[in-house]
Amino acid sequence: MKKPSLWLATLAAVLVVAACQNQRAPAEQAVAAAEASLTSIRDAATHYAPDQLQAVDAQLSTVKDSLSKGDYKGVLAAMPSLNTAIGNLRDTATAKQQEADAANAKAKDAWGPMSTDVPKMVDALQSRVDILSKSHHLPKGVTKDSLAAAKTAVDSMKSAWSDASNAATAGDFATAVSKGQAIRDQASQTMHSLGMTSG
């Protein structure tokens, strides 16, 4: 009676091991596929959905840990959730990238006129500052302090414009326009302080 029982137990153990080995290849393939899928969106996800990427990376890490421990059943059980998370990450990153691309395209349109407009404002200011610097008396409404502030502002605008132009050259029109608008605002304010309103 003991011999058949032992034989059956051995058979059962062999079957269990065989079943586990049968799950090994699918588990390894599933993890490899998930990793490849994640790699294909990693750059976009890093840029547009870093927190979500971190969570998916943690999920993948747990699955790989199960794989290394031979828990193929656990790996296969966890794969649907992981694949869903990767899919969601892909959707988020793609949507945010499209949003950013659209914003950048809009900024590129705004940069066109701004790139010729703002330098002219700065040129007009520089010209006035240069002339007022040669004046023996300042006009009504302009003080030595406001002229000094205008000189500083013009230098600052030139430096900031260089940054804005560099951003545009690099294709980052959103940054370029943001900086350009700040310079435009500062130029308007400085023109006002020097009484540069036509009349």
Binding site: D123, A124, S198
Partner: peptide, 19 residues
């Protein structure tokens, strides 16, 4: 940018005065 000989000529931000 502007004409080197007369930077104000094509600059819409140059102040104007009507005589």
């Amino acid at each position: 940018m502007a004409d080197d000989n007369n930077p104000a000529a094509d600059n819409p931000y140059t102040q104007t005065h009507v005589v």
